[in-house]
Computed example of a mutant assay.
Amino acid sequence: MPATPPPIGSYVTSWRPAPVTEEDPLNPGPVGAVSALLDLSDPVAGAGNPLPPLWQWFYFLHWPAQHELGADGHLRDARFLPPIPDRQRMFAGGRCEISEPLRLGEPTERVSSLSAVTPKQGRTGELLFITERQEFRQSGRLCLVEEQDIVYRSGRGPAGAHPTALDDQATATAEDPWRLSLQPDPTLLFRFSALTANAHRIHYDAPYCRDTEGYPGLVVHGPLLALLMLELVRRNAPERRVRTLSYRLRRPVFAGERILADGAAADGRAELRIATHREARHATAEVTFACRQD
């Protein structure tokens, strides 16, 4: 009888990587590229303008050497990748607190650190939740604090449902006034991967998705779903400044499916979600706005 593998948590008992400090000039180029990806007629911001919430994801990019990538397209070894065997990675959600918006074209410092390491038991087996914290500063001022939750599991298997998914179902409400529709195809997923330096094969290699990861087709990026929800705010409440936001990715969306982002705002906050014909809540988000006088 084969030996039982040790629990995932045992691999990270003494794993405490040190923080990393990086700098980026926040040039306008990526903003123009993302605006084109979203079929906007003009870039959403120019030098000196506020960067939309979550658009910091298009900066501080890393392009490792090809030989440093693993079979799934991710780095085999990096500072905040947990040292567990045969890692399968899923983006679960995150949070942002924005004291003041980052300004495009201003030199920016980012300090990344490991905030939490939490082993859990999920429906697909043992999981490891990693929370990475990022602090962004301009001219010495702390402007934005972001936390991202990444889920890892050891081994391969069917992954058609997100291991953190809830079983609750919501029904669409006709009174939701904010709506945005998108039907991402492989070309859009390819371009988004390029803009975020993301070589994960689940977004462009259909045979790998089906045969290795257990998905029925190409997976739409979790960050793209979060950005679409925040795009509702940017388009429908451009005068309101986002103070905090949180989002959770519940179930995957696949290329070719029509996505509906919808939501509404009231009492200084907004509730947002992503739906398809299969599910009412693939992803959800909550935004709070700064006071008018801030």
Rank of each mutant, 00 (worst) to 15 (best):
residue 222 G to H: 05
residue 222 G to V: 06
residue 222 G to R: 00
residue 222 G to F: 01
residue 223 P to A: 11
residue 223 P to V: 12
residue 225 L to R: 07
residue 226 A to Y: 05
residue 227 L to H: 12
residue 227 L to D: 09
residue 227 L to P: 00
residue 228 L to Y: 01
residue 228 L to M: 15
residue 229 M to D: 10
residue 229 M to R: 11
residue 229 M to G: 12
residue 230 L to F: 10
residue 231 E to A: 09
residue 232 L to R: 08
residue 232 L to Y: 11
residue 233 V to W: 05
residue 234 R to F: 02
residue 234 R to D: 12
residue 234 R to V: 02
residue 234 R to W: 05
residue 235 R to W: 00
residue 236 N to G: 09
residue 236 N to R: 12
residue 236 N to M: 08
residue 237 A to W: 01
residue 238 P to I: 06
residue 238 P to K: 11
residue 238 P to V: 12
residue 238 P to Y: 12
residue 238 P to H: 07
residue 238 P to S: 09
residue 239 E to W: 12
residue 240 R to H: 14
residue 240 R to A: 15
residue 242 V to Q: 07
residue 242 V to T: 13
residue 242 V to G: 03
residue 242 V to A: 04
residue 243 R to Q: 15
residue 243 R to V: 00
residue 244 T to K: 13
residue 244 T to Q: 13
residue 244 T to H: 05
residue 245 L to G: 05
residue 246 S to I: 01
residue 247 Y to A: 07
residue 247 Y to E: 04
residue 248 R to G: 07
residue 248 R to S: 13
residue 249 L to Q: 02
residue 249 L to M: 08
residue 250 R to L: 14
residue 250 R to W: 00
residue 251 R to C: 02
residue 252 P to A: 04
residue 252 P to T: 06
residue 252 P to Y: 03
residue 254 F to R: 00
residue 254 F to C: 02
residue 254 F to H: 10
residue 254 F to D: 00
residue 255 A to R: 03
residue 255 A to I: 06
residue 255 A to H: 05
residue 256 G to A: 10
residue 257 E to W: 00
residue 257 E to L: 00
residue 257 E to D: 05
residue 257 E to V: 03
residue 258 R to K: 13
residue 258 R to S: 10
residue 259 I to W: 09
residue 259 I to R: 03
residue 259 I to F: 01
residue 259 I to N: 01
residue 259 I to E: 04
residue 260 L to H: 03
residue 261 A to W: 07
residue 261 A to N: 12
residue 262 D to C: 13
residue 262 D to R: 07
residue 262 D to N: 15
residue 262 D to I: 01
residue 263 G to R: 06
residue 264 A to M: 12
residue 264 A to H: 14
residue 265 A to P: 06
residue 265 A to W: 07
residue 265 A to Q: 10
residue 267 D to T: 08
residue 267 D to F: 09
residue 267 D to R: 15
residue 268 G to M: 09
residue 268 G to D: 09
residue 269 R to W: 00
residue 270 A to L: 11
residue 270 A to T: 01
residue 270 A to S: 07
residue 270 A to W: 06
residue 271 E to L: 15
residue 271 E to N: 12
residue 273 R to E: 08
residue 273 R to N: 10
residue 274 I to S: 02
residue 274 I to C: 07
residue 275 A to S: 15
residue 275 A to W: 04
residue 276 T to N: 07
residue 276 T to I: 02
residue 276 T to C: 10
residue 277 H to C: 05
residue 277 H to S: 15
residue 279 E to S: 14
residue 279 E to K: 07
residue 280 A to V: 00
residue 280 A to M: 08
residue 281 R to Y: 02
residue 281 R to M: 13
residue 282 H to I: 06
residue 286 E to M: 11
residue 287 V to P: 03
residue 287 V to M: 10
residue 287 V to D: 03
residue 287 V to A: 06
residue 288 T to P: 02
residue 289 F to K: 09
residue 290 A to N: 03
residue 290 A to S: 13
residue 291 C to L: 14
residue 293 Q to W: 11
residue 293 Q to K: 10
residue 293 Q to A: 14
